[in-house]
Write a protein that binds this DNA or RNA. Sequence first.
DNA 1: TTTATTAATGCAACACTGTTGCAATAAGAC
DNA 2: GTCTTATTGCAACAGTGTTGCATTAATAAA
Lengths: 150, 150
Amino acid sequence: MKKIDRILEILKSNCLRITQTRISVAEVLLKNEDKLLTSEEIFQLIKDSKAHKCDQVSVYRILTKFVELRIIEKNNFQGEASKYSLRELDKLGTKALKHEHYFKCNRCQIIVPFTRCYVPKMEKELRESGYTNLEHHLEIKGLCPDCSSS
Amino acid sequence: MKKIDRILEILKSNCLRITQTRISVAEVLLKNEDKLLTSEEIFQLIKDSKAHKCDQVSVYRILTKFVELRIIEKNNFQGEASKYSLRELDKLGTKALKHEHYFKCNRCQIIVPFTRCYVPKMEKELRESGYTNLEHHLEIKGLCPDCSSS
DNA sequence: TTTATTAATGCAACACTGTTGCAATAAGAC
DNA sequence: GTCTTATTGCAACAGTGTTGCATTAATAAA
């Protein structure tokens, strides 16, 4: 099954309408799966495509809804606009948590996701102390190899 | 040596003036060492004390300066105003990084700092790949024990 | 296919956090 | 006490995001 079809399926099963704006947002996210996009960037890409005109507010509302439906992830970096990215196909609409672990270069601003994760150990300790429903956000910043060597 | 004296010493050694507003900000932070305060809260506490009147903008500027001078730490939580806290006496003005590891309850909003940290392992891997000047921010959210059991 | 219903949208206005420019004030050097 | 200028207060602005409400369009029903 294609991702776009799964997204439409999720909308339908939640009694939400398949609107042009929702399709446009989904398409932009699909075309930029390797990136983290801000609401503003998504809005501009829709505008540029000229396929359909819409309002920035609608983009905000749709992104908020998509996060609720677990279609996308919202990633926050200190003092910046939230960045969004599509979840993997098999996790679309599910409660499976995506790990949010990013390195961000303080110079060239590149954002590199990384997969190794030791946080579960900390979460295990918290769970053993009575904490529940744990989720986390980890952000490592510094200089990437390119910026370190120049 | 007292913390307040060390703060004034840092200001002097950086050729910055000891002003009433800077003293007020330092005093509020000292009186609330166990908490993380927002700029707005610090401003209100100064206003309430009536010891001295000042502007919100000055508080912003002073906090920014104090962060630069490594007198305080700036802690960011998703979509919220930055929260500030004094550093430990022996770390005031030094480059020693404070670990920022917080648990935040999604229900009662309590923020609990925790000390155990596995992040250095991730940072070690990044350093071995050529990354430098690493710093991090980790935020774990969920329900605290009290909220979990009620 | 047309009509009716109402979810979704566009627009304007607002809210929150934080920043900037500049004239007035006050810290502290002399 | 006077002078210099760092610091402040004020007003205005900027970025991100939200809310209320009248209009539009997606979809169910006729």
